[in-house]
């Protein structure tokens, strides 16, 4: 059980970064950390004690396998994650070019 709770603590650290930090890069890092912790949580749920990775080679037909479904879900989620992180970074670069700062409070004041 303690493993699940630690995983959620990692999520909360990311959430803290998104809520409290004022630097755009830090906010993006926080989002990425949240995404990692969710991936990890799905894999933790699918794990079975003394299970092997789900590859049915000869002689292992009746072994205890871990659940392949969460792994398949997370496999696609990781690649989506890098693309969305890159998109956020691209927008951050353009914001820096326009306003000259990463501080979101200052950007709020400057707009209009």
């Amino acid at each position: 059980m303690i493993v699940f709770i630690l995983c959620v603590l990692l999520f909360l650290v990311g959430l803290y970064g998104v809520l409290i930090k004022r630097n755009l890069i830090k906010i993006i890092i926080g989002l990425a950390i949240m995404e990692y912790s969710v991936n990890l949580f799905l894999i933790l749920v699918g794990y079975r004690d003394k299970g092997t990775s789900p590859i049915v080679t000869k002689g292992l037909e009746n072994a205890l396998f871990v659940d392949p479904l969460p792994q398949a879900m997370v496999l696609t989620a990781i690649v989506i994650g890098v693309a969305t992180t890159a998109l956020l970074l691209g927008i951050a670069v353009m914001i820096y070019k326009k306003y000259g700062t990463f501080n979101i409070r200052k950007i709020n004041e400057l707009k209009g």
Partner: peptide, 16 residues
């Protein structure tokens, strides 16, 4: 698809 997408992402930032 994945190789070209990641390489394009990298190149976009480098060219910038």
């Amino acid at each position: 698809e994945v190789a070209a997408a990641l390489f394009t992402l990298f190149l976009a930032f480098v060219i910038k």
